[in-house]
Amino acid sequence: MSRTTVAAVGSLAVLGLLVGGLWWRQRDTGPDRPLVVYAAAAVRVPLEAAARDYEAEHGRRVELRFGASEDVLTKVGLVNPSDPADLFLPADDSYVRLARDRGLVAESFPLATMRAVLLVAPGNSKGLAAWPDLLRDGVRVAVSNPAAAVGKLTRDHLAATGRWAALKPRVADTGTVTEAANAAKVGAADAAVVWDAVAVNYPGQKVLTPPELAGVVGRVEVAVLAQSADRDAARAFARYLADPERGLKTFRAAGFTVGSGAPP
């Protein structure tokens, strides 16, 4: 047998072992199909905790598939009959409204609210303390672009109150709210307009709550999808997330402002 043949057969054997290893990793761990939740990566921490608790209490597996809000919205729109999605939890309710407009939502449950705040870069070298400080020469403020809810709501609110034109020359557009926060964290921006629930993930950095941003409020909702193959189970998990004694606890712990939860 030539060395080329040995190498070719060897590569096939290795491929077989690799496929076997991958199959072993993917094997299902239970007889039931899991509840499939498409969620924004920004709500990963509280959602993972709530899903773990739900699995322990109810024995039903929950599979969380994360992405940017617009990305997961696209995915729930591509209905796959062999792998339907059950729930949709984007970073804010504007995406739930878009999904509802497309006929994807059966019902939704409010979970929490978020307020826009200013996350200041570590060290606060520009001495930012109030809104007028943002308008000084040389100050750079990261604001996510209007595709992200905080970016759109902030622009709309500041335009309506006559403050956007003055801030605009200081603004650095970022893709998402987390990118804006990270820009402030590494010092690429002097401050970033982010949700308060995002700002709590940056301990050690000063957070300002200027009255100029008081009207910028985002809402987090979980939607039960019309395509769900097990809508009762999906609704049960949505209610669990909206329960003040269960799911909402994890959201509160992650810095979200939670209300009284879902109606019984």
Binding site: Q26, A41, F66
Partner: peptide, 19 residues
């Protein structure tokens, strides 16, 4: 999906997403 389709580049994205 954590523990399922998460490769290292996905982990970087997921960690960045929560800051």
């Amino acid at each position: 999906t954590r523990m399922r389709t998460e490769v290292l580049s996905t982990t970087v994205f997921l960690e960045l997403s929560v800051g």
